[in-house]
Design a protein around this nucleic acid. Structure first.
Length: 290
DNA sequence: AATCGTTCCTGATAGC
DNA sequence: TGCTATCAGGAACGAT
């Protein structure tokens, strides 16, 4: 599932490919993925808009366009954006003009954006939870939703004091709290599990019960695992791929996520998987005591 | 105000 | 063997 490092990897990949390109058309076989405005209007309004900037806020990919518009894409759980040249006739695609011809078009492409140089950006999503929205930039930046998201954990302004401030009055389980978009941006199931392992904190511990030492450890761990994720091009345990359709390498660094019944790399204890709040937490019952 | 349950999807897997 | 039931999971939203 794309979290901050995966979205960041996607953004970097797109920056290298699509800056200053202009949208000429859009195709979709699942039009309700476009939430704003309706698909027909979306298609009409997007045509002729030039991509000026590609950036990330929380887990959203944002394309700033000409005429004061912004295109927002949230990949949710199983989505990923790919760039390339699709050949509808023989069902193939190339990530680069001079690159190898990939055997088959990914079977889950639900939106394809056609660019003015003959290339395309495609949104693949087998669970169809992804969302796409076209905003006036000013409206997006001042919207309730945009301003509800928590701080960016890798920005300088995210200090330890800021971390403590956002956790204030939070009594819920720490894992669920740090996964909440309104608390901190970009942290999901993978990186919350990993950060808690590094910080030696049990995922079900109440956020309000963390000691100062634990808060500092967790703060450091969140930044550490996210940066490591970016450095390794994200995690591809499930569906995530970069814009060229390739896997990320964070998997090799996973300490707990999806490692239940394997041994803890610190103390050899068997890693446990426990579901709460509708999600699976992975942790070492010895290193991360309740 | 904080927290919990529901909703959107479909491939994989468990159970019979 | 083949069918059906269950599950995963980001995050907005409504209910409590």
């Amino acid at each position: 599932m794309p979290e901050l490092p995966e979205v960041e990897t996607t953004v970097k990949g797109l920056q290298a490919k699509v800056l200053l390109r202009t949208f000429v058309d859009v195709w979709s076989d699942w039009k309700k993925m476009v939430k704003k405005p309706n698909f027909e209007l979306f298609k009409k309004e997007l045509q002729g808009k030039k991509i000026i900037k590609v950036w990330r806020r929380a887990k959203n990919v944002i394309f700033d366009l000409s005429d004061g518009y912004s295109l927002l894409v949230h990949m949710k759980m199983t989505g990923h954006l790919m760039y390339g040249i699709w050949n509808m006739k023989n069902n193939t695609w190339q990530a680069r003009k001079d690159g190898p011809l990939k055997e088959k078009i990914n079977g889950y492409l639900h939106i394809i954006f056609f660019l003015d140089n003959g290339s395309q950006i495609a949104l693949s999503d087998y669970r169809k939870f992804a969302k796409v929205e076209l905003w006036k930039t000013e409206e997006l930046l001042t919207s309730k939703e945009f301003n509800s998201w928590g701080p960016e954990p890798l920005e300088k302004s995210f200090t330890l004091a800021k971390f403590k401030e956002v956790l204030k009055h939070k009594k819920g389980r720490i894992k669920q709290v740090i996964m909440e978009p309104k608390v901190i941006a970009g942290v999901g199931n993978i990186y919350s599990s990993e950060a808690l392992w590094w910080a030696k904190i049990h995922p079900e511990k109440s956020a309000s019960k963390l000691t100062d030492k634990e808060l500092k450890s967790l703060y450091d761990a969140i930044k550490k695992v996210l940066q490591q994720g970016i450095n390794l091009g994200g995690e591809s345990f499930a569906d995530y791929r970069n814009v060229e359709g390739e896997k990320g390498h964070f998997g090799s660094q996973r300490m707990v996520y999806k490692r239940e019944k394997e041994s803890c790399k610190r103390c050899n204890t068997i890693i446990v998987r426990k579901k709460f709040g509708g999600r699976s937490a992975f942790f070492c019952p010895k290193c991360q005591k309740p």
